[in-house]
Design a protein around this nucleic acid. Structure first.
Lengths: 193, 193
DNA sequence: TTATAGACCAGAAAACGAAACGAGTCGAAA
DNA sequence: TTTCGACTCGTTTCGTTTTCTGGTCTATAA
């Protein structure tokens, strides 16, 4: 057991080193040797812990996204109304994304370089976000805040809400918007459903 | 007078030629000689009518955007409710944008190549769109559909609505979404304000 | 067996000089 | 007033060489 603990520590160290370098230099300018040096290991050693550079990058990104989604989810706890939950979920997601801001320069660059990249990312978290939103909307039906004729309509509402969220993420990522608009947009969506 | 009429005809012919080629080949693969050949003129002659290639391109794009905005505006005529107007304005804008679709491949490419391009475009139409939305919201106050505490709140609502519209445009341009979501999103925004 | 790293490879990317291209100018001519 | 051929000069493209870098293999040490 102590063996695998040590294993995890080194894996985490590599990840941390990679994250630092990715944030500073982006994916393409960061070499495996850079990461190895930063982690105080030989280059070959990295391949003992990770299959490829891509796996390292994916793990870094996934971790970041996980953190955002978890914070968004957490921000809905303790809020009684569904509308409030939706509002918080959206605001938190966007604010966190904005906060990661500079770190996500990488993402911005990567989006432009490779259109399929977003597609790939989305698959990783789309499902979870839709689950969260659906959960909230279902709650909203119980509290009479929202009404949906049937399962189809509920699904459409979920899709639309998440779609709008994505649209705003993209907007925030590629352009730069200020917080007042984020707040208002979130409230607007929450009330509009 | 007949002189300037003839002038306008040739200018229009050049524009039409340019539009065809831009749509087929994009801005960068279309040369001034291509346009001249298509318009049946010498290359130098183009410079008698337009200052630069950029001016030609801008004019083509502006014309297209004008058409979209006008159709959006028209789509609100005859609708009594402000909510209906908002909904139609958004749906029409997005559907038209989608309709121009292939033509706007250029725009898509241009956006990726030059981030400042969107900025520039936006300045051309931002003001008009905000004017239209504001007009509708003011009407919505008269019909008691919408309530705003003061001028500031109204302005924020306008900004947010237009911001969301832009976000969806970008999303539509860079990704591909289906009409059902557009409809729902428009309704959602209209009701949420 | 586990963990590490140096030596090595093949293909990708960078560097670079030469050639081609294309936006824009100018002067002449109709 | 309108048109265009000839010219320019900065940019892009292209073919080639060189460097770089992700990934593998093998040796070695604990």
């Amino acid at each position: 057991m102590r063996e695998s603990d040590k294993d995890e520590i080194i894996r985490a160290a590599i990840l941390k080193a990679a994250e630092n370098l990715f944030q500073r230099w982006g994916l393409h300018k960061t070499t495996m040797e850079d990461i190895a040096r930063e982690a105080g290991k030989g280059k070959s050693t990295l391949y003992y812990y990770y299959q490829s550079k891509e796996e390292i990058f994916d793990t870094v990104i996934t971790t970041a996204i996980d953190s955002i989604i978890n914070k968004a989810k957490d921000s809905t706890e303790g809020i009684p109304s569904a509308k409030g939950k939706i509002r918080n979920y959206i605001v938190t997601t966007l604010m966190e994304l904005k906060h990661y801001g500079s770190a996500f320069t990488i993402v911005r660059t990567e989006i432009k370089r490779n259109t399929g990249f977003l597609e790939k990312l989305r698959k990783l978290y789309e499902f979870r976000i839709q689950g969260h939103i659906r959960e909230i909307l279902v709650l909203g039906m119980a509290t009479n805040e929202y009404t949906f004729a049937d399962e189809n309509e509920l699904t459409l509402a979920v899709t639309t809400t998440v779609g709008l969220l994505h649209a705003m993420e993209l907007y925030l990522l590629l352009e730069n918007d200020d917080s007042a608009v984020i707040e208002m947009a979130a409230k607007l969506i929450a009330n509009g459903i």
